[in-house]
């Protein structure tokens, strides 16, 4: 899988000098990064570094103040924010954000809302249920009543309903019990095995570096380091600052 990430392939998603924030508060100061097709890339960094802002800026939840985000040659600032998902970018938001008073299947259905996805609804549902048989079991359960791990599955499933080219995941392990965290990283491996490109934001640095190819270190809204996951995992500085070993 990691072989697809060989150099030379044009990157799928490119961020160039992105600045963004909320109102007067600026959270990102000129962030540049790229993700190639088939790659899994992580953005790691401390709390408040701007990791979630980065994800929100890509998927159109907040507007950029400067810089560009380009998906397969198309500048996203030229696309209506709600059309970004139709470009093949799916975003699993922080804290899962399911619709708690709707069933699992209804949550998945909302994931197929955009007209181009509706025709593929049955196929995608089948795909998600094959990937997560647990969701098929729970299809009629209200999403808000499930455990945290199940909710994370449902949230990922909902994002996969749009048959995305790249999956953005914002802190998928946050707020979950350690055993469940293991399961979530298993899920990410599984998704990667299907050849899906992944951009993931995590605080659980040690775990995430084991499932991605490359990583960027984001601190106070700027990229401090980047490199292959294995190298970062071996780096004394990173280990001391973020892994705590």
């Amino acid at each position: 899988m990691t072989g697809q990430a060989s150099s030379g392939a044009a990157p799928m998603l490119v961020l160039d000098d992105v600045t963004a924030g909320y109102g007067d508060f600026q959270a990102l100061f000129g962030v540049s990064l790229d993700v190639k097709a088939g790659e899994a890339v992580a953005v790691i960094g401390p709390n408040g570094a701007g990791k979630s802002t980065l994800m929100r800026a890509i998927s159109g939840m907040i507007l950029l103040k400067g810089g560009t985000v380009v998906m397969e040659g198309q500048r996203l600032s030229e696309v209506a924010p709600h059309k970004i998902v139709e470009m093949g970018i799916a975003h699993v938001p922080e804290n899962r954000r399911l619709f708690p008073r709707m069933s699992v299947e209804e949550n998945l259905r909302v994931g197929s809302f955009a007209p181009p996805f509706r025709a593929k609804y049955a196929d995608r549902l089948e795909f998600v249920y094959t990937l997560f048989p647990r969701m098929k079991e729970r299809r009629n359960q209200l999403a808000g009543t499930m455990s945290g791990g199940e909710q994370q599955m449902c949230a990922i499933g909902r994002a996969l309903m749009s048959d995305p080219k790249i999956l953005l995941m914002d802190e998928p392990s946050a707020g979950l019990a350690p055993v469940i965290v293991q399961q979530v990283f298993e899920l990410i491996r599984k998704i990667r095995a299907d050849g899906l490109t992944v951009l993931i934001v995590e605080q659980n640095v040690q775990q995430v570096l084991k499932v991605v190819d490359r990583a960027y270190l984001l601190e106070a809204g700027t990229i401090r380091h980047s490199g292959l996951a294995a190298d970062l995992l071996g780096s004394e500085d990173i280990r001391r600052a973020y892994i705590g070993v």
């Binding site: 709600h82 998902v85 619709f99 949550n107 809302f113 955009a114 996805f117």
Partner: peptide, 24 residues
Amino acid sequence: SYMGAAIRAISQDREIMILMGVDA
């Protein structure tokens, strides 16, 4: 219907509807 599902969904979480491709 899809529209009906979106209508119920938006009352539960307004902010993320944009990720579902919904033009609020």
